[in-house]
Design a protein around this nucleic acid. Structure first.
Length: 296
DNA sequence: GTGTTTGTTATCAA
DNA sequence: CTTGATAACAAACA
């Protein structure tokens, strides 16, 4: 599940390869979540240059330039099972032979492209970027600047690592809501970037029961939660994300935060803090992991 | 065949 | 208008 730390890791990986490079060829395969229509988008991207690679929450933003037009941006959302894996160009094409096996393998994804590859972006650097998505929930969309800014302000609140994510902000969004605290911190319009894994982890660190009604949380706990969210996101970025099943970084490698997980997918195992058995329940419509003893 | 997995949006109700 | 709850989306797996 690509959440903020995973998408940021991909962004950093791809930034090195793609900024300054231009698309030479784009192919979409068995994929509907493309806008505008696939052949049109593929055509537009040809000869467009990537001038910057940004991220807001879990959304990747490729700033483009084509024939002096700097008003277009390619948005890619990985949703649940999307991957963006870059494969370096091959200068070592010995004597007309086909490419060596290594050339078409990512570190963990196996062959590229594979049956889950739905877009192949080729660049003038010789490299190729593969968009893989087992469940096809992700999307690829071309947007102009005005439309992009509109979506960003309408749908994305402050990120945990931005200055605007203050204690008073967190306090204010919790204060008036009767929904479970987990639902509030998962809401991208209120805090951008948290997903199921880091929401559960942050609530555990803060000692808050995920099902607790948001407005009932005491100031001391809100402060703990604010700190926990920042800490867990920072630590997860350092670990290059969490690979539970599908997630890989921009080079096809796994993230290593799994070794720091304290509750996520640890149901029926002892709490690392108190020894009590970790439970799993449905909160805010999501599988939710927590320690009934440490999280009140 | 059933339930589960989850990021986001649509839909509906209050 | 806001909030909250729930289903839907696609595909795989147990």
């Amino acid at each position: 599940m690509p959440e903020l730390p995973e998408v940021e890791t991909v962004r950093r990986d791809l930034e090195d390869y793609l900024v300054g490079a231009s698309f030479t060829d784009v192919k979409f395969i068995d994929f509907k979540n493309v806008a505008p229509e696939a052949t049109f988008l593929a055509k537009y991207l040809e000869k467009a240059k990537v001038t910057a690679l940004r991220r807001k929450g879990k959304l990747l933003i490729f700033d483009l330039e084509k024939a002096g037009d700097t008003d277009k941006h390619l948005l890619i959302h990985l949703k649940m099972t999307g991957q963006l894996v870059y494969q370096l160009g091959t200068q070592t094409k010995a004597g007309g032979h086909s490419l060596s096996e290594l050339d078409t393998k990512s570190a963990v994804g196996g062959d590229l492209p594979n049956k889950y590859t739905h877009a192949i972006f080729s660049f003038d650097s010789g490299g190729k970027l593969y968009f893989n998505d087992l469940r096809k929930f992700g999307y690829i969309k071309l947007s102009d600047t005005a439309e992009l800014e509109k979506t960003l302000t309408a749908n994305y609140g402050p990120e945990p690592l931005e200055k605007s994510f203050t204690l008073s902000w967190l306090t204010s969004i919790l204060a008036k809501r009767t929904a479970p605290v987990k639902a509030v911190i998962l809401n991208q319009k209120l805090i951008a970037g948290l997903g199921n894994i880091y929401a559960d982890e942050a609530l555990f660190i803060a000692g808050i029961n995920p099902g607790m009604k948001a407005h009932k949380i005491k100031p001391a706990k809100i402060e703990a939660l604010h700190e926990a969210i920042v800490r867990v996101i920072k630590r997860a970025i350092k670990s290059r994300g969490t690979t539970f099943r599908n997630y890989v970084d921009g080079k096809g490698n796994k993230g290593s935060f799994i070794k720091f997980l304290q509750v996520y997918q640890r149901q029926k195992q002892p709490c690392l803090q108190c020894g009590e058995t970790i439970l799993k329940a449905k909160v805010a419509g999501r599988g939710t992991h927590y320690c009934p003893s440490c999280q009140k």
